Simulated assay, not measured.
Amino acid sequence: MDKLRSAFNKKSTKTEKRKTDYLSLNKQIFGNKDQEKEQEQKEQKGNSKKGSKKKQKKKSNNKNAVSNKDREVRTVFVGNIPIEVKPSQLRQHFTQFGEIESIRFRSFAQKEGKKKARNQKDINKEVLDIQNAYIVFKTQEQARHALEMNSKKLFGKHIRVDNATRNNNDEKFTIFIGNIPFDTKEESVRLFFKECGKIEYVRLIREKFSRKGKGIGYVKFKKKKSVRFATGLNGEFFQGRKIRITKSNHQKSQQALNKKKKKRERQNERNKLKKERKYLDKRNEKRNKRKRSFNGSKKNSNNSFKKKRTNKKKNK
């Protein structure tokens, strides 16, 4: 009996070992597969997150573009404001049209050697005593109602109020003025053309940073008749100079400039092609010369070799 029990115990231990070995093998085989599946799932999640981030960025960019357009539609440009005016003072006059989100002052006359006027010390008040502002309203209707303040007198000067997105530059009602002194002001131009009719705005062209005048500008009237009266003043003296007055052809001048640019670009392309062709011709000529010289040297060597052979034969 003892022998039978010992044999049975040995068989049971062997079967248990086989079971453990089998389970370990299964874990090694199928456990690795499970780990691979988990890694694949993690990678897919990571890729999906990256894709979602890219989509979120695109959505955010689109939202920003839409918000910027909406903001531009609600903004109003206000020009010819005295330099002493503060945002709180300007807010008091424009709150009658609606709630204001923000006010930004721009177009300061900057001192030499400074690109941005960050403080009051950087502003050159001697060159220009006016500034421009951008007012952002909460709705588009409020901004449209604020345009009623255009060409009205505020803070002792006639202000210009216009949409920030649209240049209200109708050429039928505007004139171009030239040969003006560089230190002229909008109010003096307005007084000069006062008898011609009601003026909507005066815009003098200035340099970007220094804000010095360029001697040219535009005057827009409310009626077409006043343009005819204003052009009749061409050649008269304005602040010691003969003023030049013509009908505004801003679009035509831009078209002409674009045509000139295109012509220059074409001419530059042609010149480049000519230079390339000349360079290639010279390179080909040099190559041909080398080939000729090489072929000539070969012929000479062959002739000399033939002569030597003939001489040897004769000597024999």
Rank of each mutant, 00 (worst) to 15 (best):
T165C: 13
E40D: 13
S102R: 06
K212W: 03
E148L: 05
K138F: 08
R270T: 08
E43L: 14
A117R: 00
K278V: 10
K125W: 04
E84Q: 15
A65D: 10
G232V: 00
F209D: 06
A7Y: 06
K194E: 15
K312H: 07
K114N: 03
E276I: 11
G156L: 01
L191E: 15
N163A: 13
E276S: 08
N26G: 05
L154H: 15
S301N: 12
Q35L: 14
K242H: 14
R104Q: 11
F108Q: 02
K252S: 12
T139S: 14
R203V: 11
K220R: 15
K220A: 06
Y279C: 11
K27S: 06
K261C: 02
G79K: 01
R118L: 13
N179M: 07
R71Q: 10
R277E: 10
F137M: 01
S60C: 07
K262N: 07
I245D: 01
E72K: 11
K14C: 10
S297D: 10
R290W: 06
D2Q: 13
K57F: 05
K274Q: 09
F108A: 03
F94G: 04
Q41T: 12
Q267R: 07
S301G: 05
G296F: 14
G235Q: 00
E276M: 09
V219L: 10
K242N: 14
N268I: 10
K291I: 15
D281G: 03
F305N: 14
N303Q: 10
F193L: 08
A109R: 00
E186C: 09
S67R: 12
H250E: 13
L257C: 07
A256Q: 12
R166H: 11
K49P: 02
L257E: 07
H145N: 13
L233D: 00
T75E: 15
K313C: 09
T13D: 14
T13H: 14
M1R: 13
Y218L: 14
F182S: 03
P87N: 04
N9C: 12
A7K: 13
A109S: 15
F192C: 09
Q267G: 06
R160L: 08
K69N: 12
G235D: 00
K263R: 09
F94I: 06
S293V: 07
N271D: 09
R206Q: 11
Q120T: 14
S48C: 05
D129P: 02
A65Y: 05
V78Q: 01
K316F: 08
N68P: 04
L147M: 04
N249M: 05
R18H: 14
K259L: 13
F155R: 01
K312M: 06
K286S: 13
K86T: 14
T184C: 06
K115Q: 04
K259C: 07
A164G: 04
Q142F: 10
T310W: 10
T231W: 02
S12H: 09
T75S: 15
K262W: 04
N169A: 05
S107T: 05
F97L: 02
R266Y: 07
D2R: 11
L154Q: 11
E126N: 14
T15P: 02
T139I: 03
E16C: 10
D70L: 13
K14I: 12
K289A: 10
K291G: 08
E200H: 05
I123F: 02
N61A: 12
E148Q: 07
I103C: 03
L204Y: 09
K316G: 14
K291A: 12
N179L: 08
S151F: 02
I177F: 04
